[in-house]
Simulated assay, not measured.
Amino acid sequence: MYRHAARLVSRATVVAGRVRPFSTDIAAAPAEDTAFTEAWKKVSPNVEPPKTPMSFMKPRPPAPASIPAKLTVNFVLPYQSEISSKEVDMVIVPATTGQMGVLPGHVATIAELKPGVLSVHEGSDVTKYFVSSGFAFIHANSFADIVAVEAVPIDQIDASLVQKGLADFTQKLNSASTDLEKAEAQIGVDVHSALNAALTG
């Protein structure tokens, strides 16, 4: 299903027998918004016009004519790069809408991540990370950029500390008296529950 959808999206949209380019394609993206620039110069000819969003947009990477055999993954944290331009078979990300498998040729997507397990599949080898939150950017050219606020390999998680943290935050949630205390305690419960599920699942 994903491969079929990717073929449709990667070749743009055909309308009435002609291809409608995306706004970020090289031919379709003007260097600047000329109508805005001309209007600005009429009002304020001595001041340089400000940049518009279009001037900051980069061309969309070209989609290959055929679907590659591998998915190229970049997985970064604020303080280090976990995976850089690595070719893999599949990644499964914990999106807020549910677990999402990404294969080569996946339709272009942006997914918000929730606390959960990110798994990277290379043949029979599977590497699992627990991520706290972040975003996955899936590009039409079979590249995936995954950005997480915090991540740790599953095998480095101490199950006893997870159980203790879950108990502590559950107690804080039950005794919270303000909305802020409730929200902070609920975040702690959610993260430790997801950690516990990652270890037991």
Rank of each mutant, 00 (worst) to 15 (best):
M1P: 11
R3I: 09
R3T: 12
H4W: 09
A5Q: 13
A6E: 02
R7I: 03
S10Q: 12
V14K: 13
V15F: 13
R20N: 00
I26D: 12
P30Y: 06
P30G: 08
A39T: 06
V43G: 00
S44V: 12
P45I: 03
N46C: 02
P49E: 03
P50I: 09
K51G: 01
S55R: 11
M57N: 07
P59L: 01
I67T: 15
P68V: 08
A69P: 02
V76C: 07
K86D: 11
E87V: 01
V88H: 00
M90G: 01
I92T: 15
P94E: 08
P94R: 06
T97G: 10
V102T: 06
L103V: 09
P104I: 05
V107D: 06
K114R: 14
E122I: 02
G123D: 08
S124E: 14
K128A: 11
Y129H: 11
F135R: 04
N141S: 08
N141A: 05
D145A: 05
D145L: 07
I146A: 04
I146G: 02
V147F: 10
A148P: 02
V149F: 07
V152I: 15
L161V: 04
V162Q: 03
D168N: 13
K172T: 06
S175F: 00
S175L: 07
A176M: 03
S177D: 08
T178D: 09
E181V: 09
A183P: 00
E184Q: 14
I187W: 03
V191Q: 02
V191C: 01
N196L: 14
T200N: 05
